[in-house]
Amino acid sequence: MSTQKASTNGIVITLHDIHKTFGEHEILKGISLEVHQGEVLAILGSSGSGKTTLLRCINALEIPASGTVSIDGQKIDYSQKHSRQDVLHLRRKTAMVFQSYNLFRNKTALQNVMEGLHVVQKKSRDEARQEARKALADVGLSEFEDRYPVQLSGGQQQRVSIARALALKPSVILFDEPTSALDPELVSDVNEAITAVAKTGVTMIIVTHEIGFARRVASQVVFVDQGRILERGTPEEVIDHPKEPRVQAFISKLSYK
C-alpha cells in the first residue's frame, strides 16, 4: 500500500479505529489510516457514507466516540479523557477548507488570511500581513486582498479560504468537497490552486466527487462505504482497477458524467 513517496517520508497522520455515532446511528465503524508527509490522500465514497464526518473527526470538529487520532506528534485517544487544550493543540496542527468557503464575511480577503497568523500564532501584524500576502499570491489573488467576501466570486472566495489554510503552515490541510458548491466554469481555477499547493509538498486530505481530479492530484485513495474503508491504494489501483464491485459501480457511474 505504501507509495514511493511514503517510503521516504515519515508518517504525519495516524487514525486508529475511529468510531463515531450520531444518536443511534454509527456513522464511522472503525476507520484506520496513515498519511505520510507530503502525501495527498483522496477520500471517495457515495453520499452519506461518512466522508465529511471522517474529515471532521480528524480536526475534532466532531469528537469521535473512540479511537485515536495523532497528527505530527499530537495524539488524542478518544476512549480516554481528553481536555479542551488537547483538542485545541491537535486542531492547530490542521487547517480546513470548507465546501461553502466559510470566510469571515466581516473581514477582507487579506484580514481573513491574517487572522490565524496574528491571533493564533501570535505573529506581529506586519509579519502576518506579509505572510498573508504571500499566501494570497500563491492562489493568484494578490489584487483582491482588500475585497470583502461578498465582493468575490465563489471560486475566488474558495481560493482565499485555501490561502487562509495554507498560510497557517499546518501539518495537514483538510478539504471537504472544495469545488462542489462552485459553478462549473470556476472549478478548474480552484483545482489548479489546490494542485499548486500539493506540489509544494503540503500534506493534504481531500474529500471529493471529482474522480478525474483525484486521479491527478492524489498519491493515495481510500473509498469509504457505510462508515468503513472498503478499498485503498494508489489512484491506479482504486480508480483505474478497483477490486470491489461497489467501488467499480461507483467509479463507472461517475466517469460517465
Binding site: 486542531r91 487547517a95 470548507f98 461553502s100 466559510n102 493564533v120 489554510a165
Partner: peptide
C-alpha cells in the same frame, strides 16, 4: 450567525 463562520474560527485554531 452563520454556523460555518464559527467552525471556520475553530478550524484555524481559535480557542473558545
Amino acid at each position: 450567525v452563520d454556523h460555518g463562520q464559527i467552525e471556520a474560527g475553530k478550524s484555524i485554531g481559535f480557542g473558545r
